[in-house]
Design a protein around this nucleic acid. Structure first.
Length: 228
DNA sequence: GCATTAATTCTGT
DNA sequence: ACAGAATTAATGC
């Protein structure tokens, strides 16, 4: 608790969107990796694929999702620059279990298992810590989603998501469609459309082109803890 | 390069 | 489930 007590600023909501700005620490290790490019809207990995290393995402955004046998998709989280893909499977000795798609053109660096274990972790404790931070973030995203989906109303979850995304991305602009948000939160698309329409009517949200812009972040924040 | 059409996606009821 | 608006892709000139 670094801040004063009186005005207890609640911790920012955990949202299923990973992104880390301090990427400088990775510069010293990039030579150990292999640069890879992923074209937008293409598949990166499917369930069952062998995991031979980890990927540091430097540019672009990818989507991690689970798919039922019938083909229904449930997005688990998005990953942006500074986040690491594949470390959970690598350390658990598991094959990949999710669908991973590039939603836009991406630049990443792949580090082999041996380079991670013998070089990164040994020579660069800060990178080891970054790996743990990445892993812990995924863990919190999943537990928070379970928690919110069982205890919170759809309306509140949408407000939490919009608010948390603004804070973590440090931008009021949200360029996600209603159906993408619905898949991410496990809600019906129409539920998301109605809730967002409601927030727009109240002036808390605005539409800029095809994007949403949070106009009154304070009001959205207050809605997180009070329904309707 | 530009204009039309066809297809697909997005939103609000 | 459906309709209108808005994008995007494809085609022809």
């Amino acid at each position: 608790m670094t801040k004063a007590e009186g005005t207890a600023t609640p911790p920012p909501p955990i949202v299923p969107w990973m992104e880390f700005q301090n990427q400088e620490m990775w510069e010293k290790a990039l030579h150990l990796g292999r640069k890879v490019l992923w074209k937008g809207k293409t598949c990166i990995q499917r369930p069952g694929d062998d995991v031979t290393g980890i990927f540091l995402i430097r540019e672009g955004v990818i989507k991690v999702s689970a798919t039922s046998a019938e083909g229904v998709q449930r997005t688990l989280w998005f990953m942006g620059p500074g986040s690491i893909l594949g470390e959970a499977a690598l350390f658990a000795g598991q094959r990949n279990t999710h669908h991973i798609d590039a939603v836009e053109d991406c630049v990443a660096y792949e580090f082999s298992r041996s380079n991670v274990v013998d070089r990164l972790l040994v020579d660069h404790p800060d990178l080891g810590e970054a790996l743990l931070t990445n892993l812990a973030t995924k863990s919190y995203i999943m537990s928070t989603q379970v928690e919110e989906s069982t205890f919170l109303s759809a309306h509140r979850r949408i407000c939490r998501f919009l608010y948390g995304l603004c804070l973590s991305r440090n931008s009021p602009q949200i360029s996600l469609s209603h159906s993408v948000i619905a898949e991410l939160l496990g809600l019906h698309r129409v539920t998301v459309s109605n809730a967002i329409g409601d927030l727009k009517r109240r002036g808390l949200l605005e539409e800029r082109g095809h994007d949403l812009v949070v106009a009154d972040i304070g009001a959205i924040a207050s809605l997180i803890n009070s329904d309707i």
